[in-house]
Nucleic acid binder design. Structure first.
Lengths: 462, 462
DNA sequence: AGATTTGTGCTTAAACATTTA
DNA sequence: CTAAATGTTTAAGCACAAATC
């Protein structure tokens, strides 16, 4: 066996010098990627500093910079000036969360939307099918939505505090689709977007896909901390910010009204583009006493407001409204066309009819009731709450012990029959001490099934 | 006035030295971008060689390389080793082509799909609304399509020569959506994709959006030239190839069967990823005698086959099938989820019912008849055809004089009441000598309107 | 056919900025 | 508060490859 004189050198990663081919930077990046994917380098591991690795490999240190950058671009590692370079928390796996009905697990993972109300939607869809203008819904016309459909959308959002006109609203295919469109139309690869430390995992994946870097900002019970945001803005060029003010996913924190103003001031000052995902507006506006208005109102010219109907009205029809300032309009229309051409006017018409007929309110009040019951049941099992939490959220953020292996925990619970997601999946940046589980309450078929799952969970967590 | 001693220096572009700030590369790129956008540098203009500009600015020539690269990334310029760097043909404008019914022009621009058949779709939509399982179409389940819907899709594509299973087909929201998903899931920014010299302008825009570079390959009456493709593959790293074999958009060329085999050999040899847009399969399979099979069959493990129903069945429902090799499956599902979550099962069900009920064939035969009549009329005006042209295409590729200004021509015709697109919009790379117009035949409301438009066009072209 | 023109890719060099001890 | 550690950014140098003349 060859005697490697560096065996006892205290470097966390020692690529095989002999395996290096030219171009070096590329070769190094490949070796690093392999070692991360194969699990030899665990998430959080600190890599050797650029200069140290360069010495070891007899290269200029900027060649290492380049190799590291390549891996950073792929989301495998992240670097912090002064501290070093580290393996990303979710480097080796995809954290996309989707519906998964191939197994018969109790699903506390994917957040569905209490699908028991879809009977009402089916009735309305039938009515739409009988309309004499049905044929007019089947062509290429009105790529951003037929005027009366947009008007209905504007009416719907009026109660959340949104006021806009036909030219600044577009119908797209759900919130995820809207986020994809917003990212691709307003940002470039390499741009940075500030997010909560814990944020919507599908947004993290989307950012990764578009090579947009997330800059995690700490928060408290009132939402993201303005000082921390300001600090990051001064340090590096940040291009945008992503917020879910009405009920953060996954933490359920609501941004309080005073905090919205504080954040808006920073966002304005640094010319950030705000992406506001207000999918939970229907659960918050008019219900939570502190609610005044969306952040869009405070920054109408530099914001994109996204209001999906998937959670509030119907998940399967894939309809969301996007509202944007005039500066973004041209770009937005272009991207909507490039990605969707248009959203089916038939689907949009069913949602429109739900709104115009008043059935939408009926659905919302049923969903609220279902959410109330589910939350009541949850509280019987896990009474401890945290300040700032949303009372009616479709999911809960459960604090757990700090020293468990996140993948193992998910596997353990799967074996016991429930699917849950560990807080590591929602990390936009560095690892944290505190650990949580996100428990979806809206995906079981009944309260009984929810109870069954909570039993298992409670028992497992002891 | 200041005397500039370089005024007579034969450089096509002389940035103001005094306007340069550090970082130089960035400053140069900005100045160049401004001059292109403001029209001071016309499309096709040759920029100064890197070394020459570097001398002029007293910088190392690789700094100019970097500045040029920045503009190339934005699609403003393109570089050819040995020849120089040039302003892109469509640098300053968006060439996205979308439906535009805000004006009362006769639309020969956007290619619609003879919307007169939508009455049949409306009837079938009504039937679907009466199904007792309607409610089951309204949730998050089956993100890639409900099994029976996928089966119907597979049946539909069977006659085009596609054979696949449930695991390798997904329902997405139209061809454009499918292309976006294919590009984002299988390519990285900076990757290169080979295309026909003239190609689908919305694909060009999509590639620009994702920062994927197109490498134009010349072709003849049988399609893209294999030797030219091979040449490019040997020269630079090419990652993929985009083809529309059943009826190229805009040229209407069909790739002949022998050519498919020749191209497949090159694609296999160089491990390219093939994106096959077969939106016109219904107009070609079983109609054009040379048709044997899609290229997907020749390269099943390295291809994505896209079959939209927008042109063949119904444009407004936004349903396309994607068929892919096993190697792409995981990536594909992830991207579909990230961009769409799912495609509305209601829309997919209407398309499914069209196929299962046999109404789909009825629609197709009506559309073919409409296409035949439109083409017959067109031939009365412009009898000269070119070898390899599709006989039933929804649009025609009309050769025109070489020395007209493309934007001016479009504007002139708009003033006369018709919208057409000049061949410059479809250029994936360098400018060419020959000029064409793409004339959509499928977007007028009647043959009379078509005739009216052709009259105007004929008169204008003299 | 060989020299010249022109763009590409990789590596190095140096000045800089931030964080941590 | 300063020094050390560590990552970032910009620019230059050089070998190379393709196209042109």
């Amino acid at each position: 066996m060859p005697v490697n004189s560096f065996d006892n050198y205290p470097m966390s990663w020692k690529p095989d010098k002999k395996a290096l081919k030219r171009p070096y930077y590329y070769s190094i990046a490949e070796l690093l990627e392999q070692d991360i994917i194969n699990g030899f380098l665990a998430p959080g591991t600190k890599l050797p500093p650029q200069r140290e690795l360069a010495d070891f490999l007899d290269l200029n240190f900027t060649t290492i910079t380049r190799a590291y950058k390549l891996c950073e671009f792929k989301g495998l590692i992240y670097a912090v000036t002064g501290s070093g370079t580290f393996v990303s928390p979710n480097a080796a796996r995809s954290i996309t969360i989707s519906a998964d009905n191939t197994t018969n697990l109790i699903d506390f993972g994917f957040v569905a939307s209490f699908e028991q109300t879809n009977g009402i939607v089916a009735e309305v869809a039938q009515k739409v099918a009988e309309k004499n203008y049905l044929e007019k819904l089947l062509n290429y016309n009105d790529p951003t939505g037929i005027p009366h459909q947009k008007t209905a959308g504007l009416n719907w959002m009026e109660s959340f505090g949104i006021h806009a006109d036909q030219e600044h609203i577009a119908i797209v295919s759900g919130a995820q689709n809207a986020l994809a469109i917003a990212l691709i139309s307003l940002f470039e690869p390499g741009n940075r977007i500030a997010t909560d430390l814990y944020t919507f995992s599908n947004f993290i994946e989307l950012a990764k896909m578009f090579h947009i870097q997330l800059v995690p900002i700490p928060g408290d019970q009132f939402g993201m901390l303005p000082d921390e945001l300001e600090k990051q803005c001064c340090q590096t060029k940040i291009h945008g910010i992503f917020l879910i003010p009405s009920c953060s996913n996954p933490t359920t924190i609501m941004i309080s009204d005073f905090r919205k103003h504080e954040l808006a001031a920073i966002i304005r000052k640094h010319h950030l583009i705000l992406i506001e995902d207000d999918i939970h507006a229907f659960l918050t506006a008019g219900i939570v006493s502190d609610y005044r208005q969306p952040m869009f109102n405070l920054l109408p010219e530099q914001s994109v407001y996204i209001c999906s109907t998937s959670k509030s009205l119907c998940s399967g029809l894939r309809v969301a409204y996007m509202v944007y300032g005039d500066a973004f309009r041209k770009n937005m229309l272009q991207s909507i066309f490039n990605v969707n051409v248009k959203t089916s006017s038939l689907d949009a018409e069913v949602i429109t009819e739900l709104i115009l007929s008043g059935k939408a309110h009926e659905i919302v009040s049923q969903k609220k009731q279902l959410a109330q019951s589910a939350n009541d049941l949850y509280k019987e099992y896990f009474p401890a709450g945290q300040p700032g939490e949303h009372p009616l959220s479709f999911y809960r953020w459960l604090s757990i012990e700090e020293d468990v292996d996140s993948s193992q925990l998910e596997v353990d619970l799967k074996m016991r029959g429930i699917r849950v997601f560990h807080s590591d999946r929602f990390l936009s940046g560095q690892t944290t001490r505190e650990k949580y589980l996100r428990i979806a309450l809206s995906s079981t078929n009944s309260l009984d099934e929810l109870k069954l799952g909570l039993d298992i969970l409670k028992q497992y967590l002891g």
